[in-house]
Simulated scan of single mutants.
Amino acid sequence: MSTIQGTTELGPTTAKRQVYSPLETYWNAFQEWRKRRRLQTELCRLTDSELMDIGITRGEIDYVASSHSISPDPLRWMSDIGTLR
């Protein structure tokens, strides 16, 4: 027979329990929509010359705000465009 010597400390669990929650999915989608609307509003508040400075026109605001592949940071977005040439 063997005996266990000492104690084992239990630390905080790091694994998050994955549970499918439709409400959480809808909430996350709503938050993403709000972020896009906020970006669109901020871009609409800029003047035409300020929009030209970051390389977009007023007609492209909806596309830029709705595109998931473009960074919301205009400086990073413009630097990505510059590397394509």
Results as ranks from 00 to 15, higher is better:
Glu9Arg: 05
Glu9Ala: 12
Glu9Gly: 07
Leu10Thr: 12
Leu10Val: 15
Leu10Asn: 09
Gly11Trp: 01
Gly11Glu: 07
Gly11His: 05
Gly11Thr: 07
Pro12Trp: 05
Ala15Phe: 02
Lys16Leu: 06
Lys16Met: 06
Lys16Thr: 05
Lys16Pro: 00
Arg17Tyr: 04
Arg17Met: 06
Arg17Gln: 08
Arg17Pro: 04
Arg17Lys: 08
Gln18Ala: 08
Val19Thr: 07
Val19Gly: 00
Val19Ile: 08
Tyr20Gln: 03
Ser21Lys: 06
Ser21Asp: 12
Ser21Thr: 04
Ser21Gln: 04
Ser21Tyr: 03
Pro22Gly: 05
Pro22Trp: 00
Leu23Val: 12
Leu23Lys: 09
Glu24Leu: 11
Glu24Ser: 12
Glu24Arg: 06
Thr25Tyr: 10
Thr25Asn: 13
Thr25Ala: 13
Thr25Trp: 05
Tyr26Ala: 12
Tyr26Met: 11
Tyr26Ile: 12
Tyr26Asp: 06
Trp27Tyr: 10
Asn28Gln: 14
Asn28His: 13
Asn28Glu: 12
Asn28Val: 05
Ala29Cys: 05
Ala29Pro: 00
Ala29Val: 06
Ala29Asp: 09
Ala29Lys: 13
Ala29Leu: 11
Ala29Gly: 09
Phe30His: 12
Phe30Ser: 10
Phe30Tyr: 14
Gln31Trp: 12
Gln31Thr: 14
Gln31Phe: 11
Gln31Ala: 15
Glu32Gln: 15
Glu32Tyr: 10
Glu32His: 13
Glu32Gly: 09
Trp33Arg: 14
Trp33Thr: 10
Trp33Asp: 08
Arg34Asp: 13
Arg34Ile: 15
Arg34Thr: 13
Lys35Val: 05
Lys35Tyr: 10
Lys35Gly: 04
Arg36Ala: 15
Arg37Thr: 12
Arg37Gln: 15
Arg37Trp: 08
Arg37Gly: 07
Arg37Phe: 10
Arg38Asn: 13
Arg38Gly: 10
Arg38Ala: 15
Arg38Glu: 15
Leu39Gln: 12
Leu39Gly: 02
Leu39Ile: 11
Leu39Lys: 07
Leu39Thr: 10
Gln40Glu: 15
Gln40Tyr: 07
Gln40Thr: 03
Gln40Trp: 06
Gln40Ile: 04
Thr41Trp: 06
Thr41Asn: 13
Glu42Leu: 14
Glu42Thr: 07
Glu42Ile: 05
Glu42Pro: 00
Glu42Asn: 14
Leu43Asn: 00
Leu43Gln: 00
Cys44Pro: 00
Cys44Ile: 07
Cys44Asp: 13
Cys44Tyr: 10
Arg45Trp: 03
Arg45Pro: 00
Arg45Thr: 02
Arg45Cys: 01
Arg45Met: 03
Leu46Ala: 02
Leu46Asn: 01
Leu46Thr: 00
Thr47Phe: 02
Thr47Ile: 01
Thr47Cys: 03
Asp48Lys: 03
Ser49Ile: 07
Ser49Met: 03
Glu50Asn: 03
Glu50Ala: 05
Glu50Val: 01
Glu50Lys: 01
Glu50His: 00
Leu51Val: 04
Leu51Met: 09
Leu51Ser: 03
Leu51Tyr: 07
Leu51Arg: 01
Met52Trp: 02
Met52Cys: 06
Asp53Thr: 12
Asp53Cys: 04
Ile54Glu: 08
Ile54Trp: 04
